[in-house]
């Protein structure tokens, strides 16, 4: 049995890789779980009842209604 190729027999190649190159195989799996977690975890978190925190304000709130500008001087 020669070394299996990935493109012709993917499942057999994966089984071979998990036996012969376990460190690289499983670290690829663990590493590719990262982006999956990034996409999959927030819906799960919301489904379990966690509420998204408010976004941190980056500027001052603009007051509603007309603004009043002071006229003249206070001490006059």
């Amino acid at each position: 049995m020669s070394t299996p190729q990935f493109w012709s027999t993917p499942l057999r190649y994966l089984r071979w890789a998990s036996h012969e190159r376990p460190a690289i195989f499983y670290s690829l799996i663990i590493g590719s779980m990262g982006p999956v977690a990034l996409v999959g975890l927030p819906p799960l978190r919301r489904a379990l009842g966690d509420v998204d925190p408010e976004t941190i304000p980056m500027s001052y709130p603009i007051p509603a209604g007309p603004r009043t500008f002071p006229k003249g001087y206070d001490d006059e």
């Binding site: 460190a23 690289i24 690829l28 590493g31 990262g34 982006p35 990034l38 975890l41 927030p42």
Partner: peptide, 23 residues
């Protein structure tokens, strides 16, 4: 280089994703 470093790098990718996914 072929055993410890790939595992470490895999976790370096995974853990920040979990942290920011779970806030």
């Amino acid at each position: 280089w072929l055993v410890l470093l790939p595992i470490t790098i895999a976790y370096v990718i995974l853990l920040p994703c979990v942290v920011s996914g779970l806030l």
